[in-house]
Amino acid sequence: MRVVDFSQVAAGPTCTMMLADRGADVIKIEAPTGDLCRQLGPPWQNGESVIYMALNRNKRSVVLDLKTEAGIQAAMQLTADADIVVESFRPGVMRRLGLDYETVRQLNPKLIYCSISAYGQYSPDAGKPGVDGIVQAVSGLMSVCGVPGGEPSKVQAPVVDMTTGILATLAVQDAVLHLQATGEGQWLDVSMYESALQLQQTSLASYFSDRKVPQPCGSGAPYSAPNEAYPTRDGWIMIAAYHPKRWHVFCELLDLQEYKNDARFSTSSDRVENRRDLAEIITSVMQSKTTKEWLPIFEEADIICAPVADYADLVASPAFTAGGYTASFQHKNAGHVEFVRPYAPAIENQPVVPIKPAPSLGEHTEEVLSALPMARQTG
């Protein structure tokens, strides 16, 4: 399927990257100045943005100046011949350009047209700009991150961007099934704001239940304890020992039997209510051994746990290396570029899509535009 991609930065490009990873022909439309993501860094690799290269593999780059009549005409021809359009302009921009769904569908009634925006096409905030951190803030996500009494904190990975891209991909795939069943295309309205809410299903359900505004609790889970990271002599271990049986075993392993049925800790709700007292007690014992000393003790007793890994630890871990979670391409400017492999569930006989490097700006402009009817007529 052919995808014409008018998106930039992260949310839209994540969607089109996933479609490209599954074999779609993604034509990335860029202004003469390029996708804003090309300017995001550090890090840079021989002058190329690593962030851009990570999100734009397997695509073809076409430069069009949508401020000119020629650029609009070329964009119209591409969308008229496309299966899918993905755009991430602020609501109303595509209409002003004459490339909105209602206009394009007159030429291409089977078109699947996915609009990705910060707040949605019809929100009271539709006209406002938004990026990952802004939406983390306004959606409440930032308010529950960080440590008690600390400054507001965001999830460092752009989780709203990534989630929006994944949900947009799901929406497009649903629309493809609908098209196959009915022959009808449709317009998809995907917002970063709603994606951030979807990330917080359990947290918001808890708030709706008791109307208590949640506060940050560091690495702890607000609904169970012990279920957080505790310091050891030389690092940290994440422990999930909130199930009644595991809680009792955990107390025995730490020689804290007197706390098994302590009124402050007898139930999960009690332990959550008295999390700070519990953490002080557990920490006083956990710091007596190193992380490597504790892990086999917990694992043998079936206590759910893991060391808190940094990225160097992660990449060196047996699970990561055995899983083959990295892939790479050779970029003509940046050289060897390594990234997390395209997501692909283990489906028997699923064809493997070769990985192509992220394109340089306008790399495929002539190739793509020369095949348009307008070019053939004037050629």
Rank of each mutant, 00 (worst) to 15 (best):
154 K>A: 08
133 G>A: 10
140 G>P: 06
130 G>T: 11
135 V>L: 15
149 G>M: 08
148 P>S: 04
150 G>W: 05
149 G>N: 10
126 A>E: 13
124 P>S: 06
140 G>S: 05
137 A>S: 13
127 G>T: 04
147 V>W: 14
129 P>R: 10
143 S>T: 07
133 G>D: 13
127 G>P: 06
128 K>H: 14
152 P>T: 07
133 G>V: 09
139 S>E: 04
124 P>C: 02
152 P>D: 05
131 V>H: 14
133 G>Q: 13
154 K>Y: 09
145 C>E: 14
137 A>R: 01
127 G>L: 07
152 P>S: 09
125 D>V: 04
134 I>K: 07
148 P>N: 02
150 G>C: 06
142 M>W: 03
141 L>V: 04
127 G>E: 15
142 M>G: 06
141 L>R: 07
154 K>P: 02
139 S>K: 02
127 G>H: 12
134 I>N: 14
132 D>Q: 04
154 K>N: 09
143 S>W: 02
139 S>Q: 03
142 M>V: 06
152 P>E: 05
146 G>C: 10
125 D>L: 12
130 G>L: 01
144 V>Q: 08
129 P>W: 07
138 V>I: 15
138 V>G: 01
131 V>R: 10
134 I>Y: 12
128 K>N: 15
152 P>H: 11
146 G>F: 07
130 G>D: 13
153 S>G: 02
145 C>G: 05
137 A>E: 00
142 M>F: 04
151 E>L: 15
126 A>F: 09
138 V>K: 04
127 G>I: 05
134 I>M: 15
154 K>Q: 11
150 G>I: 02
132 D>L: 05
127 G>F: 07
127 G>M: 09
136 Q>W: 01
148 P>C: 03
137 A>L: 00
144 V>F: 01
144 V>G: 04
154 K>S: 07
131 V>K: 01
130 G>N: 10
130 G>I: 10
140 G>D: 02
132 D>G: 02
134 I>Q: 14
134 I>V: 15
144 V>R: 06
124 P>I: 03
144 V>A: 03
145 C>Q: 15
141 L>D: 07
134 I>L: 15
150 G>N: 07
133 G>E: 08
134 I>E: 15
144 V>W: 01
146 G>S: 11
125 D>A: 08
126 A>H: 07
136 Q>V: 04
131 V>L: 12
148 P>R: 00
139 S>C: 06
150 G>K: 02
143 S>H: 12
124 P>F: 05
141 L>Q: 10
153 S>L: 10
126 A>L: 02
150 G>A: 11
134 I>A: 14
145 C>H: 14
126 A>Q: 08
129 P>C: 08
132 D>S: 03
146 G>H: 09
143 S>A: 14
152 P>F: 05
153 S>Q: 14
131 V>Y: 15
131 V>I: 12
153 S>A: 14
152 P>N: 09
140 G>H: 09
136 Q>D: 01
126 A>I: 02
139 S>H: 05
141 L>A: 12
130 G>R: 04
140 G>K: 05
144 V>T: 13
